[in-house]
Design a protein around this nucleic acid. Structure first.
Length: 448
DNA sequence: AAAAAAC
């Protein structure tokens, strides 16, 4: 297949795709679109970055355009559910670009913004609604919309929707949609619970795998640097200093840890912003926009940004803390090496994180090359476990190392205090080095 | 056990 022309898509969409410079379909698009155009259910095993949004969006929009009727007041023709507000926004913006000048209403409803404004927008009826579950339920309870006319349901990042707190909302929402519908479910992994969900929500689905599930993209150079919790900040600063012009995402395990690290790096002179669930939606959007525009080079994030965020310029992903859910490692590093570009993922591993590292390597079915430090020996791991029980793996006072601010008392952050000097940009890396890992494979073109 | 998602 050479281009989008023969997949059965509406002419106006093809025109817009050309305008967007999208010529070649990705594998999941090429395989999935013809089936969805014909009305089949779809089970897609894929992360974002494989071209998922277009894979379901283009054929769904084609069907809606072909149907031709405008939606009745408060009805929704197609519902797309996403696990984070930012992802919902991104999907909305993509679909709106695909459907430019086409007679379809595409809207987004998410938390953190005025509900009345969203309520009013829904009154006229919507062709494609992209929503986060919580806000959608709220609007449903307020009778701001009805799902009785809904013919399409898309569950994006469905494996995250299985989490407690999401799954109940999901089931409540799904119950309101007529069974006679077309359902598309996308998931990066296929745990048992997901198989069950797929079984109950899909009818005779086409199953498509964009890449082997759970496997990191081949284009991403990966490396693990063994260090201690106390040395992580200085080590990160060293790495960042070497690539000050490139975009990096740094993942922290906790919201508090993300803020703390952001403050420290800011004092050291780095251009950073933090994004996590305790920030206002306005702050979240501003941080992401500034990062996307390259005004901010380093984004410190919790797992709110682990999935879906599509910023092609991201060259580095740092797992400052290893994720406690192994799958999230794969999602996190998938923020780089996008749109055919190269990308590097570097993980910091403290003694207390050896278990996490092992389960990540097991999940991926591959070892992460060591690029610095020495794997922590069992004795060291045991010592770490004793000093800081697994539950609260917070930096211990006695462990604050070079470059790490001593743990502050609550409120100290607001007090001005002498900034520690940033490690010199050309500082010689400690023990063997913060060297960029060697690329194991050349970057291949394609993808989005 | 943490983070996300509703006010």
């Amino acid at each position: 297949m050479e281009n989008f022309d023969n997949l059965g898509l509406a002419p106006i969409l093809l025109q817009n795709l050309a305008g967007l410079g999208l010529i070649k379909p990705t594998p999941i698009q090429e395989q999935g679109i013809p089936h969805i155009v014909r009305g089949r259910d779809l089970l897609g095993l894929a992360q974002t970055g494989t071209g998922k949004t277009a894979a379901f969006g283009l054929p769904m929009l084609t069907r809606i355009i072909a149907y031709g009727k405008r939606p009745a007041p408060k009805t929704v023709r197609a519902l797309v559910l996403a696990p984070t507000r930012e992802l919902a926004t991104q999907i909305h913006d993509n679909l709106a670009a695909f459907a430019k000048d086409a007679p379809v209403r595409i809207q987004r409803v998410v938390g953190g913004a005025s509900i009345n404004a969203q309520s009013e927008k829904l009154a006229k009826g919507t062709d494609v609604l992209i929503a986060t579950p919580g806000r959608l339920l709220d609007l449903l309870e307020r009778r701001a919309l009805v799902l009785s006319e809904t013919k399409y349901l898309v569950l994006d990042e469905a494996d995250q929707m299985l989490d407690i707190g999401f799954i109940h909302a999901l089931r409540r929402i799904a119950k309101l949609i007529p069974a006679e519908r077309q359902t598309m479910l996308f998931s990066a992994t296929m745990p048992k619970l997901m198989e069950e969900l797929a079984q109950s929500y899909l009818t005779d689905p086409v199953r498509i795998e964009a890449a082997p599930p759970g496997k990191a993209a081949d284009r991403i150079e990966q490396g693990v640097h063994f260090t201690t919790q106390g040395d992580k900040a200085a080590l990160l600063a060293e790495y960042l200093s070497k690539h000050v012009d490139e975009l990096s995402i740094v993942f922290s395990r906790t919201k508090h840890g993300a803020d703390k690290l952001a403050n420290l790096l800011e004092k050291w002179g780095f251009s950073v912003a933090a994004i996590h669930g305790n920030k206002s939606q306005n702050q979240r959007e501003r941080a992401l926009a500034a990062f996307r525009a390259g005004e901010i080079k380093v984004l410190i994030a919790t797992d709110v940004a682990a999935r879906g965020i599509d910023i092609p310029q991201v060259a580095f992903v740092y797992n400052y803390d290893l994720p406690n859910v192994p799958d999230n490692y794969v999602h996190r590093i998938g923020r780089t090496a996008r749109a055919g570009r190269a990308g590097t993922a570097i993980a910091f591993c403290a003694p207390a994180e050896m278990d996490e590292l092992k389960s990540i390597e097991k999940t991926m079915g591959q070892k992460i090359p060591v690029i610095g430090g020495e794997p922590h020996a069992a004795a060291e791991v045991a010592r770490a476990a004793q000093q800081q029980p697994k539950q609260g793996r917070k930096p211990h006072r006695g462990q604050a190392g070079q470059g790490q601010r001593p743990p502050r008392a609550e409120g100290a952050a607001s007090k001005p205090r002498a900034a520690k000097p940033a490690p010199k940009p050309q500082a010689k890396p400690a023990d063997g080095g913060a060297a960029r890992p060697r690329r194991r494979r050349p970057a291949t073109a394609a993808a989005e």
